[in-house]
């Protein structure tokens, strides 16, 4: 049984009918073709699905799409177009803070969230701030460097 769902995604008003069991990342990926957010585990551990819902970072795999009724959702695609994470993106590229790039959209959301709460974090605070986001490729050092770089700019 599908339910009606209305929300705003990346500033765009969306109406859809979804099965209640569909989690928010699947909704973004499968229904809206916003494939920038990834599902690396679907049990809340890896952070690849991190997105912003009503301004707060959440695990997209641990929220049902129907729970986002009326919500304002931002994903890497919208954050890119709005320029909200441009400095971080530039620093990630310059510092090679990504390899396969699978973790990167979620990592950018975590980094932006961290810097909003703490504009000049120490390296330890950066490490803690992104500790809910796995990266299997980089070993994290370059990511910490890139975030540190942006915080100093």
């Amino acid at each position: 049984m599908k339910l009606d769902l209305s929300l705003t995604v990346n500033g765009e008003a969306i109406s859809a009918r979804v099965e209640p069991r569909m989690h928010l990342v699947d909704f973004l990926r499968e229904v809206l073709d916003l494939t920038g957010s990834h599902a690396g585990c679907e049990h809340g551990v890896c952070g690849a699905c991190s997105i912003l819902v009503n301004g707060e970072m959440v695990r997209g795999c641990l929220m049902l799409a129907v729970q986002a009724e009326g919500a304002e959702v931002w994903t890497v695609e919208g954050l890119t177009e709005s320029g909200a994470i441009a400095a971080l993106q530039e620093a990630f590229v310059a510092r090679n803070a990504l390899q396969c790039g699978y973790c990167t959209p979620g990592m950018l959301v975590a980094a932006a969230t961290l810097l909003k709460a703490n504009p000049s974090p120490t390296r330890e605070e950066i490490r803690e701030g992104i500790s809910g986001n796995y990266c299997r490729c980089t070993g994290y050092h370059a990511i910490v460097d890139a975030i540190e770089e942006v915080s100093r700019a």
Binding site: G36, V76, V93, L98, G101, Y102, P105, L108
Partner: peptide
């Protein structure tokens, strides 16, 4: 990839 435009 940083723009979420990968094609996995």
């Amino acid at each position: 990839l940083v723009a979420g435009r990968g094609q996995y």
